[in-house]
Nucleic acid binder design. Structure first.
Length: 480
RNA sequence: CGAGAUGUAGCGCAGUUUGGUAGCGCGUUUGGUUCGGGACCAAAAAGUCGCAGGUUCAAAUCCUGUCAUCUCGACCA
């Protein structure tokens, strides 16, 4: 990337409080995460960006396995008749479905939807796979891409095609389905907070915001550095909304045919967008160590001098042997200073500089991406110091993000306060439960209800909007 | 889908008003000097001007259409 690009970049990110959106776009581009494709609204994820996704995938999948789930693969094309079976669902998705109308040279008699989500196809298969209560539950997940014909797109946050995982489960009882819905919401919450270092609010979506066809939708909501909300994962309880039209029936212990209870839950490459916007700073991306494709980069200084390259490589090898993800940057066409800036832009948590001066003293210089603290460390101690440093960075990044979020969340008791608060944060308010109030708040302040937290300790008696008796504690924010 | 803007070398752009040899900076390649926070010198390579039609002796430039990207709105698990 050119020097001029860099200067422009610095200007953009310095001004990120005024133009966070431009800052985000620049970080995505300059950190070499993605590129645009000739296909409308789709992106090509580049190796560095995809490596983040692979780490998300690997660690999240381990959680799914731990909680008893198995992976499957379902077809990408869904016959229109299947999509039409659940009325709310088709109504919700119809505007953004892409259709296949021709196969080879043959015009199709029934057009095929490119999956926007796979509830319908899962249900169709589940109906064939389940007969007895002994077959239940089915706890399946798939990693795939889906397509939604979005009007406007934004890299990682909303693209026409995106990578995600969708879990679909069916259960014998409503209680079990609800338990599953909450369990997976918890998996998402823990993953966001412990792996991605992103604090989230979780709770139930309002009727207006819930998933098309769901009985109840729950979500984890993150806060970006401009105070806007990003829905980072959802978990739905469908009850028997799908199993009835799709006839997923089983013979229960009591000899009675019953409909199964269904759930679904999903997260997507949007999480990468969340990482960028939660942690990034004026120098670019800042990755939590657990998700960083490169956890530490070793940069030789004055590499032409005798022994430097070998010494630096030895340091990199020793850290690699610990199981860390290490990059040894021995490029000879850019200066060390260039490398420092580039790896900071890419968000690498720890940089290790190895030069002649260090080697003479059997030391290396370690620099933290989160604090920029420089520390001279004896080479004999790197095996203990570097892993500790990575842990400290992970913890510190979460604490910083949580402090930011807490400082940008406030209780509001009237519309003026709400307007002020959603202009750069979350507003916690009491709500009467009436959709008219949500509509009004959206119309006036372009903020939407995010979720109703599980701790419903009231903060007032009346609705923030209409003043009628309040029923729910709820978060409002502007959303991506 | 509505309003506005943009599309020229890998990246960022000028050139379009007034049609006439395809330009600049960075990057890239080669050689050399450098190397502890975005080095320098010299030489070189690289472009169907988004795409498709049209006008013209001649189109990056004018006309029509179309596709894509960005911003704002509407829509949106």
């Amino acid at each position: 990337m050119g020097k001029k690009n860099q200067q422009e970049f610095v200007q953009h990110i310095t001004a990120r409080n005024e133009d966070f959106s431009q800052w985000y776009t620049d970080v995505v581009r300059l950190a070499d995460l993605m590129d645009y494709t000739p296909v409308r609204g789709c992106m090509a994820i580049k190796p560095y960006g995809y490596a983040i996704w692979e780490l998300i995938q690997k660690q999240m999948d381990a959680e799914f396995k731990r909680t008893g789930h198995k992976n499957v693969s379902m077809p990408m094309l869904i016959p229109e008749s299947l999509l039409l079976k659940e009325a709310d669902h088709v109504e919700g998705f119809a505007p953004e479905v892409a259709w296949v109308t021709q196969g080879g040279t043959e015009q199709l008699t029934e057009r095929l939807a490119i999956r926007p989500t796979s509830e319908t196809i899962f249900c169709t298969m589940y109906a064939r796979w389940v007969q007895s209560w002994r077959d239940l539950p089915l706890l399946y997940n798939q990693w795939c891409s889906v397509m939604r014909w979005e009007k406007t797109t934004r890299p990682f946050l909303r693209t026409s095609e995106f990578l995600w995982q969708e879990g679909h489960t069916i259960h014998a009882t409503a209680e079990e389905a609800q338990e599953e819905t909450m369990k997976m919401l918890g998996v998402y919450r823990d993953f966001c907070e412990q792996v991605l270092a992103i604090p989230v609010y979780c709770g139930q979506k309002s009727e207006k915001e819930k998933f098309a066809g769901a009985r109840a939708t729950y979500s984890v909501e993150a806060m970006m550095q401009d105070g806007k909300a990003l829905q980072s994962g959802t978990s739905h309880n469908f009850g028997t909304n799908f199993s009835e039209p799709f006839e997923i029936k089983f013979l229960d212990k009591d000899g009675v045919q019953k409909f199964a209870y269904e759930t679904s839950w999903g997260t997507s490459t949007r999480l990468i967008g969340a990482i960028i916007m939660t942690h990034g700073d004026e120098r670019g991306l800042k990755l939590p160590p657990k998700i960083a494709p490169v956890q530490c980069v070793v940069v030789p200084v004055a590499a032409h001098k005798e022994g430097v390259l070998e010494g630096a490589r030895a340091v990199a090898d020793r850290l690699t042997a610990l199981g860390l993800r290490v990059e040894f940057d021995d490029r000879d066409n850019v200066t060390p200073g260039w490398k420092f800036n580039e790896w900071e832009l890419k968000g690498v948590p720890v940089r290790i500089e190895v030069g002649p001066r260090d080697l003479a003293e059997n030391k290396v210089v370690c620099v933290r991406r989160d604090t920029f603290d420089k520390q001279s460390v004896s080479i004999d101690e790197i095996e203990t110091v570097i892993p500790e440093m990575l842990d400290a960075i992970q913890t510190n990044m979460f604490e910083i993000a949580r402090t930011f979020r807490d400082e940008h969340t406030a209780d509001v008791f009237n519309m003026d306060e709400l307007e002020k608060q959603v202009n750069g944060g979350y507003a916690r308010a009491m709500w009467c439960g009436d959709q008219a109030c949500e509509d009004l708040i959206k119309e006036k302040y372009s903020a939407t209800s995010r979720c109703m937290p599980f701790d419903q300790t009231p903060i007032a008696d009346t609705c923030v909007c209409c003043g009628k008796p309040a029923k729910k504690l709820i978060y409002f924010a502007k959303a991506y």
